[in-house]
């Protein structure tokens, strides 16, 4: 399990670096919104972790986003911890099929961005000064579903393979 946690954390670090290099203003940002790769990776990996490490992976991912982004420390950490917690609560439903996973990723994305916006506003960040803020809550969710189509099966395959190797050993 520890190796899986390490693998999940490694994926999260790669995702944070790719997020800041690939997406956002001046990079890939169709219709002025960009996906949240880190969130997709958190959702894809914490499904295969024990609850406590899963929450810590979510928290660490958010903290890294805060450290490399412009928001106060702890805002994304809060949002991503909630994402990890909600993913744990509904992970059994993921076996229902890809449509359920897509709906789940979309709902978690919207919830995370909304939570981040509300918390940020409470801490004086004025996120809601942007007239297009509603679009920034919803459109990334749609992009995340597209990203999840690639990331979730990949993470599933790798994490299951690692689990299988562990049981054989």
């Amino acid at each position: 399990m520890n190796r899986n946690v390490g693998f999940a954390l490694g994926l999260v670090i790669v995702a944070v670096i790719l997020q800041s290099a690939l997406f956002g203003e001046g990079r890939i940002q169709p219709f002025d919104a960009s996906p949240n790769l880190v969130l997709v990776v958190v959702v894809a990996t914490v499904r295969y972790l024990e609850p406590e490490p899963a929450l810590l992976v979510g928290f660490t991912a958010g903290l890294l986003m805060d450290l490399l982004g412009g928001s106060p420390l702890g805002l994304w950490a809060m949002a991503m911890t909630v994402v990890a917690f909600l993913t744990l609560r509904v992970r059994d439903r993921a076996d229902d099929g890809p449509f359920t996973v897509a709906v789940g990723v979309f709902a978690l994305s919207v919830a995370a961005h909304t939570l981040f916006g509300v918390l940020g506003t409470l801490f004086g960040q004025r996120f809601f000064a942007d007239p297009g803020v509603l679009r920034l809550m919803i459109v990334p969710g749609l992009y995340n579903v597209v990203l999840a189509a690639g990331v979730v099966p990949l993470a599933t395959r790798v994490m299951r393979a690692r689990d299988a190797r562990r049981w054989v050993a």
């Binding site: 956002g24 001046g26 986003m65 490399l68 412009g70």
Partner: peptide, 15 residues
Amino acid sequence: RIFSNGVSDLDHIRW
């Protein structure tokens, strides 16, 4: 030279 953006659309920063 700018080498990095923020990590979300709500970040209006550059590194």
